[in-house]
Design a protein around this nucleic acid. Sequence first.
DNA 1: AAACTGACTTCTC
DNA 2: GGAGAAGCCAGTT
Length: 100
Amino acid sequence: MSFRERVYQITANIPKGTVATYGQIAKLAGSPKAARAVGMFMKTNPFAPRVPCHRVVASDGSLTGFSAPGGVMKKKKMLLGEGVRFVGAKVDISSFWNPS
DNA sequence: AAACTGACTTCTC
DNA sequence: GGAGAAGCCAGTT
């Protein structure tokens, strides 16, 4: 399985109401520094509806990119509909961050 | 095969 | 705390 395959798999495996950072996905895919490449995969995602690329956010929780009509705002609304907490214009990644 | 690009991340000013 | 620059990875041309 190629790196991108894993990325798509992981992205599609993100639970509803949850978001993951590019770095996290890249790490799970096997390359913690490949966050950039991950973003590219999302951009060229051949599994459009299957891969919830809108659940993938930057390490800051910011919704970067998203060429879809409406822009990041639309994605924000969509995530809100899934139960994702937002802090201002960013995702509250702190809620997903598991503080031990 | 080499160079450029990009939905990133992290450090420093 | 916000803005700018450098580094890494995989893909595309």
